[in-house]
């Protein structure tokens, strides 16, 4: 899916973000490699969404840096993001996808075939002509994933994509995420759902109160968290 050079690894160094005088993210450093599914894990308010947005370039850090191995527009267009509440344009399902393709400069003749292929991938062929905003919550999130799929990203950010979905819809979304992984798209997903993290993660970034407390192999993290907060979170104890 990637061109000659790769976006990855992504190097994040001493990243901090402040809003209204409050430090919401502090001294976060890590490196993301291709091929492994990274899950940002932590309780609500840990700074997961913030970190995703900083990596994706939707927010500008107060200090520190986010350095992709490719810079500029080539970098931005090879990333995609799926939000907790999918942003559905006031168009049909297929219209939502062809809009994204048009925004990426895909030739007019190629848009519809690619859009329909993406819908098929997400199991949404039947609702292609339906207004996106009339789809169910699960269908909307699958459409958001199909829209990302169509643009063939090298890196896909997901911000709690299943937090408002029922188990069946969650399973459908996770299957699609598997599809991205199989197509060599780097998955970077935020979740507070421990079970989901266990299902998906190859690597864990464990955030708590704006700090990165643990990072590394998921199995190790779940078996032997090295911090007190990590241990409490894995044990399912409430953590504030």
């Amino acid at each position: 899916m990637s061109g000659p050079a790769s976006l990855l690894p992504l190097r994040v160094q001493r990243l901090a973000f402040e809003a209204g005088g409050t430090r919401l993210l502090d001294d976060v450093s890590f490196t993301l490699q291709a091929g492994r599914r990274t899950v940002l894990l932590g309780p609500n308010g840990a700074g997961k969404s913030l970190l995703l947005r900083l990596c994706h370039g939707l927010l500008t850090p107060t200090s520190g840096e986010v350095r992709w191995s490719l810079e500029g527009r080539r970098s931005a267009r090879r990333q995609a993001m799926v939000f907790q509440h999918p942003v559905m344009l006031r168009r049909s399902a297929v219209g939502n996808i062809s809009h994204a393709l048009a925004a990426h400069g895909v030739a007019r003749a190629d848009r519809l075939p690619r859009a329909y292929a993406a819908l098929a991938q997400a199991g949404l062929s039947d609702v292609a002509r339906r207004p996106a905003r009339l789809l169910s919550g699960g269908e909307q999130q699958r459409l958001a994933l199909a829209r990302a799929w169509a643009t063939q990203p090298e890196v896909l950010f997901l911000d709690e994509p299943t937090s408002s979905l029922d188990p069946a819809a969650t399973r459908a979304v996770e299957t699609l995420i598997d599809g991205f992984h199989a197509a060599d798209t780097k998955i970077v997903m935020a979740t507070h759902d421990l079970a989901q993290a266990r299902r998906i993660a190859d690597d864990i970034l464990f955030l708590h109160k704006g700090r990165l407390l643990e990072s590394g192999d998921a199995e190790n993290f779940f078996a032997q968290p090295t911090t007190e907060e990590g241990r409490a979170f894995v044990a399912g104890e409430l953590l504030w």
Binding site: R53, H56, G57, L58, R73, A76, R77, Q79, A80, M81, F83, V87, L89, A100, A102, A103, H104, T151
Partner: peptide, 15 residues
């Protein structure tokens, strides 16, 4: 409502 999605798409000003 649309801002983050359009910025995520790296949509230009005209788009």
């Amino acid at each position: 409502e649309y801002g983050e999605h359009l910025r995520s798409l790296d949509a230009g000003p005209v788009t």
